[in-house]
């Protein structure tokens, strides 16, 4: 395996101006602006190998987007080195992006007023895709993502999820070696999310496409990624296999129970009651010690259960745990 991306000691400092509210402050800011410096990346290094699906996780403002921007070629870092697909992204932008596919969750990349199919045909011409290759790739993707009808309606009339799927198609049509997905599942419902993930897995298998995905969604990471990079406060706190970190920190699950009738106080070994009132119980379960099934059985036999929700601890909790461990490293 060869590494497709090498990042060395990447740093980025942002300069922003601050302004207080109100008219007089607005006028003052006209003549005298105060600037603030914010260190978004404090020197990160990592490598990514061909054919990997890497999950890039961290809380808001951790530096995920900054890294994605640097890898997309429209961010000049303050210092450090990036070699991606053999290019320095921000220096050789035009040549570099020919082999890159990017989906930015928040930005419009499709032609707003035209049907998505027009953007697809644009990709065909811009990337010089052969007619037959284009047709077969398009059919393949469109069928998998259920876009046959939708792609003929103007993008502005699409739902958020449909737009996202179309963006993904547009980013993949030219069969890029590397694909960056920034918050790709925003706006997708549960079924669409499933399709979306299966699709990414399939493309990854079929074409050996390397994916980097930023997300808040732990489930998404679990379904897709073998490798994850956790970033917090502009620093990488974990870079390694998902299963290793799971063993260590994802051993806990949360169970939220809603009750039909009032219940007694809950008690079971290896379970911690986080919260309990008359009709609701929230339990934290240590899954290395006890099976979730066992807990649920106990709940069902002792209570008049209306609803049960099982969830992972939020990513912020995991990061806190990592920080609480000795030296901040795993």
């Amino acid at each position: 395996m060869t590494s497709i991306i090498t990042v060395k000691n990447l740093k980025k400092v942002y300069k922003t101006h601050t302004r207080k509210e109100g008219l007089s402050n607005a006028i003052k800011s006209l003549f005298n602006r105060k600037y603030e410096y914010k260190q978004a990346l404090k020197g990160i290094s990592f490598e990514i190998e061909e054919g990997e699906i890497v999950g890039f996780i961290g809380p808001n403002g951790a530096g995920k987007s900054t890294t994605i921007k640097a890898l997309s070629g429209f961010l000049y870092p303050t210092s450090g080195e990036v070699v991606s697909l053999g290019f320095t992204p921000w220096k050789d932008r035009v040549d570099y992006v020919a082999n890159l596919g990017v989906v930015l969750g928040q930005k419009a990349q499709l032609w707003w007023d035209l049907p998505a199919i027009d953007t697809f045909y644009l990709s065909k011409d811009v990337y010089g895709i052969k007619e037959s290759t284009f047709k077969s790739r398009l059919n393949f993707m469109v069928k998998l993502l259920d876009l046959e009808k939708v792609m003929h309606t103007p993008v502005r009339d699409m739902s958020l999820g449909e737009r996202m799927k179309c963006k993904l198609v547009a980013a993949l049509l030219h069969n890029p070696k590397l694909v960056l997905l920034d918050e790709p599942s925003i706006g997708l419902d549960v079924i669409a999310k499933d399709k979306f993930r299966d699709f990414i897995k399939l493309v990854n298998k079929k074409y050996k496409t390397t994916f980097i995905i930023t997300t808040h969604d732990m489930q998404e990471i679990e379904r897709l990624c073998k490798k994850i990079i956790i970033i917090n406060n502009g620093q990488i706190v974990y870079d390694g296999l998902l299963k290793d970190i799971k063993k260590k920190y994802l051993s806990n699950k949360f169970i939220d129970v809603k009750l039909e009738t009032k219940g007694e106080k809950f008690k079971l070994r290896y379970c911690k009651v986080v919260e309990q009132n008359e009709y609701e119980i929230k339990i934290e379960v240590n899954t290395t010690k006890i099976k979730v099934k066992e807990v649920i059985n106990s709940l069902l036999s002792n209570y008049d259960v209306a609803d049960i929700l099982i969830s992972d601890p939020p990513i912020e909790t995991i990061i806190q745990q990592i920080f609480r461990s000795k030296d901040g490293k795993v």
């Binding site: 020919a98 930015l104 419009a108 990349q109 990337y127």
Partner: peptide
């Protein structure tokens, strides 16, 4: 202004 210019920067044409 709305940042959509990055969409243009992601195409392999100046």
């Amino acid at each position: 202004k709305d940042g959509d210019v990055v969409g243009d920067f992601l195409r392999p044409v100046t």
